Computed example of a mutant assay.
Amino acid sequence: MKTILLLLISNIFMTFAWYGHLKFKDTVLWKVILISWFIAFFEYMFQVPANRIGHGQFTAFQLKTIQEVITLVVFVGFSVLYLKEEVKWNYIVGFVFILLAVFFVFKKW
């Protein structure tokens, strides 16, 4: 559970680092890049420990899969609440396919 929480926090930082600047298109690019790097530093402060703690309980493939699902969940919330974009039906279909991939990654064969 600690791994999941750390990955969640890291993804919140990373989503703001990668996409938060989209509301500030008048800001010069070099400033946006520096601010994004600053935010990404904090993402790494949670991402690296999450992977270190989680590896062993999960495989590296499973850790990456968990991280991607968390990224999508965080991004959907970010897009709707911060960027004011709508979730379309085809996005949901795509996410369902990703969840199907999660099933196969975690299935014990």
Rank of each mutant, 00 (worst) to 15 (best):
61 F>G: 08
23 K>R: 15
23 K>I: 00
17 A>C: 07
76 V>M: 13
94 G>E: 01
64 K>H: 13
102 V>Y: 01
57 Q>K: 09
54 G>L: 00
99 L>I: 13
56 G>M: 00
75 F>V: 04
85 E>F: 07
39 I>W: 10
14 M>D: 03
94 G>L: 02
33 I>V: 12
36 S>N: 02
70 I>Y: 02
40 A>W: 09
104 F>T: 03
35 I>T: 10
29 L>R: 14
34 L>D: 02
18 W>H: 09
12 I>D: 03
20 G>I: 03
25 K>Q: 14
31 K>I: 10
56 G>K: 03
22 L>T: 09
51 N>M: 07
24 F>D: 03
13 F>L: 04
61 F>K: 07
26 D>I: 08
94 G>H: 05
53 I>P: 07
96 V>E: 00
15 T>W: 12
55 H>K: 15
62 Q>I: 02
85 E>W: 06
71 T>H: 09
9 I>S: 11
46 F>A: 05
71 T>M: 11
43 E>G: 15
5 L>V: 15
58 F>E: 06
101 A>C: 08
95 F>V: 12
84 K>N: 13
99 L>K: 04
46 F>D: 01
104 F>H: 03
21 H>S: 12
95 F>Q: 04
103 F>M: 07
37 W>Y: 13
66 I>N: 00
43 E>Q: 15
58 F>P: 00
62 Q>H: 01
41 F>W: 10
75 F>A: 08
28 V>E: 12
9 I>H: 09
55 H>G: 05
98 I>R: 05
67 Q>A: 14
72 L>W: 14
93 V>P: 09
52 R>I: 01
82 Y>R: 14
44 Y>P: 04
26 D>L: 12
60 A>G: 05
99 L>F: 08
30 W>N: 11
84 K>Q: 10
67 Q>C: 11
48 V>E: 01
74 V>N: 01
23 K>G: 04
87 V>I: 15
102 V>L: 01
93 V>G: 03
75 F>T: 10
81 L>N: 08
45 M>N: 10
14 M>H: 12
98 I>H: 04
63 L>S: 07
38 F>N: 05
69 V>K: 07
